[in-house]
Nucleic acid binder design. Sequence first.
DNA 1: ATTATATTTTTGAACAATCAAAACCGATAC
DNA 2: GTATCGGTTTTGATTGTTCAAAAATATAAT
Lengths: 237, 237
Amino acid sequence: MPLPSSTVENYLKTIFKAQSAQQDRKRLVPMGHLAHALGVVPGTATTMVKALAESGLVDYEPYAGVRLTPAGEKLAALVLRRHRLMELFLVKVVGMSWAEVHDEAERLEHAASDKLIDRIDTMLGCPATDPHGDPIPDSSGSMVTPDYQTLLTCPLGETVVLTRVTDQDATFLRFLEGNSLKPGQMLRVETRDDAADQVVVRGRNNRQIAIGMRAAAKLQVVPAGYGAEAAGVDSPA
Amino acid sequence: MPLPSSTVENYLKTIFKAQSAQQDRKRLVPMGHLAHALGVVPGTATTMVKALAESGLVDYEPYAGVRLTPAGEKLAALVLRRHRLMELFLVKVVGMSWAEVHDEAERLEHAASDKLIDRIDTMLGCPATDPHGDPIPDSSGSMVTPDYQTLLTCPLGETVVLTRVTDQDATFLRFLEGNSLKPGQMLRVETRDDAADQVVVRGRNNRQIAIGMRAAAKLQVVPAGYGAEAAGVDSPA
DNA sequence: ATTATATTTTTGAACAATCAAAACCGATAC
DNA sequence: GTATCGGTTTTGATTGTTCAAAAATATAAT
């Protein structure tokens, strides 16, 4: 009944992201995963999740895990909307760096009113994605999550456009920025070597960049020439 | 030792404002006033103030009241800085209305990092005052608080510039906005009538505006032609 | 089927912030 | 001086969020 606390918002958001990350988004999220993602001990997550279930925001099956109800899903999507619009705003309008907006937005998302968020949305022209390529839910809480390939799964030798980076760690983002690996950038995967744990891509100015496979899996791409994503693209050759 | 919670920040801010509002800013602020301003029962304020005294942020004299220590004063000033820069930012950059930014800033001030605040400060050109004319402390926490006259005390018939509005109530601010009574506006006080509880001023486009004395006391002014305040001023005649 | 292992839940306790209501000052009024 | 009254403090309790450690459970291994 009262507005959700920022703690509740964080639980919902984390469950939402965990569900999105697993192939079958209807599957239960294990308590351990949730607790770890939130930085609390498992017992704390159990307590909180039981309360969320009380409020009808999640379905909870003891010893199995949690899943958002439609109500919880909507709330979570709106938190994500606030977060992602805020990130884009901080980059585009305030001029903050790609790498530092995540933490800032992490706090501001709980303080910004709907009025402010809608104003930012208008100001930015109702953008579809944030600076990391994450889709921005609309004000009703719905969102399209395209199922991109990654640098690990895309065809070798073909030109692709980097569309999304699924890790917000500042150090990682600074590394990517230093190598011009930002959404919109065109790339070609040259080689993959399982044994060496390496993926070599050719990027901006025809430069070669080698990254590990764990990192490569976080870079999502779409075949070049797929509509509007090409805005601001820089050819690899 | 840990960073102050937003509750603590609000207590400090409120004590700071109460001290500024009384003529002798060194006087103790009564618990009742503090509790009322914060919307808590007196007992709650007592408990919290004792904790603040423990941390060295306030001096507390039982049954007498509370006063900020230098450390508490600095913290409070920095909260005010965040609040006021945020308000100005919301008006100037985001395009929100004068009347609605206070509540928004009231929440954002606790979530914005120093980095963000400094960026906003630079972006706005290190402004001296917020949209209500309240002075903005610098990043070291110092601030000049000029001792303005009000529409109740300024000389009759002389042209003055509205410099500050000491009430953030949205309805009141909308009323002022509707009558072009915003900082920078030139005015002349035509008459004051104690019995009728009325002050009549001539403002923008030579229009006459009558306001009550309680409201008049909240409008601070400076004699016309006092330096830089004249930016964006509209003559009353 | 029984045991071992990893995960999860429970229990008991803590901390921050709050309220209601009883007890307690301190300044005034007689 | 004693009574009175408004403001203040104390006391006891509640809510939300968290942890540590003990107890319980599910799953996999023998």
